[in-house]
């Protein structure tokens, strides 16, 4: 859901840049407290994985629409929300600069939607549901719900920004909201399934320091949460 140049009016994309810049500088301050030497390569690798996975569009309705992993909940669950924001911002900046995916003017909005709001929504939902739902199954259900909600939150933000840019296309916000949320309800199912699979797989590999011996680091990370 990368917004290209031309979709947003100046007021909207400029405001989004300001809000994103503020959120990111807060996120950088917070992630300084979280980042250890061991975390640095993990951030690089998680960003690389999300970039690669975002290239793999899966069909939602064959021949009509597709979606791809967003990765905001994935990164937030594995590395905490502040690192996740840095990761998603890096991915979005590279996609825009090198691949023409998402516009230069829209980068602030894309960061706000996918690197800030999706990350915080996914992380908050994960914390909430994993506390309520017990056991390994409960955790996986929590990961699924968090991932689905992160996509819905980003889609809602995108629709609202497009709605604020009425002067560009003369389409009222309600007409944008309904199909944006409708399509992303389906795309979010893919997000949830992929995120559950990837979290379980990379934790088995020992990626997030969650192997025996890595426990203290995991606890520290979660204390630095929201």
């Amino acid at each position: 859901m990368h917004i290209p140049d031309g979709f947003l009016n100046v007021q909207t994309w400029a405001s989004a840049y300001l809000i994103s810049a503020g959120s990111l500088s807060y996120g950088i301050k917070k992630s300084r407290e979280d980042l250890s030497d061991r975390q640095v390569p993990r951030l690089g690798v998680m960003a690389a994985f999300i970039f690669a996975a975002q290239m793999v569009n899966f069909p939602v309705v064959a021949g009509v629409a597709s979606g791809h992993l967003l990765g905001a909940a994935l990164a937030a669950i594995l590395l905490g929300p502040w690192s996740a924001s840095l990761i998603l911002t890096t991915v979005l900046a590279i996609q825009m600069l090198f691949f023409g995916d998402g516009g230069f003017t829209a980068l602030g909005a894309n960061v706000l939607n996918m690197a800030v709001v999706a990350v915080l929504a996914g992380f908050a939902a994960y914390k909430l549901f994993s506390r309520i739902l017990p056991g390994a199954l409960g955790r996986n259900v929590s990961i699924f719900i968090a991932s689905w909600l992160s996509v819905m939150a980003a889609a809602l933000m995108t629709a609202l920004e497009l709605g604020l840019s009425y002067s560009v296309h003369q389409v009222p916000v309600t007409l944008i909201l309904i199909p944006m949320l409708g399509w992303h309800m389906l795309i979010g199912i893919g997000e949830g399934l992929i995120t559950v699979a990837v979290v379980n797989f990379v934790e088995k590999l020992g990626f997030a320091g969650s192997r025996p011996g890595g426990g203290t680091e995991v606890r520290h990370r979660h204390e630095g949460g929201l």
């Binding site: 859901m1 990368h2 917004i3 290209p4 140049d5 031309g6 979709f7 290239m55 793999v56 569009n57 899966f58 069909p59 939602v60 309705v61 064959a62 021949g63 009509v64 629409a65 597709s66 979606g67 791809h68 023409g100 516009g103 230069f104 003017t105 889609a155 995108t158 560009v168 296309h169 389409v171 007409l175 944008i176 199909p179 944006m180 399509w183 992303h184 795309i187």
Partner: peptide, 26 residues
């Protein structure tokens, strides 16, 4: 990967404003 439009492209096409983003890359 599927080459179908993504969610936003689908919506922008259906609502008739996909062209607002074409050739506008800064």
């Amino acid at each position: 990967a599927s080459s179908s439009p993504d969610g936003l492209e689908r919506v922008a096409t259906d609502l008739g404003f996909i062209d607002k983003g074409e050739g506008k890359n800064i």
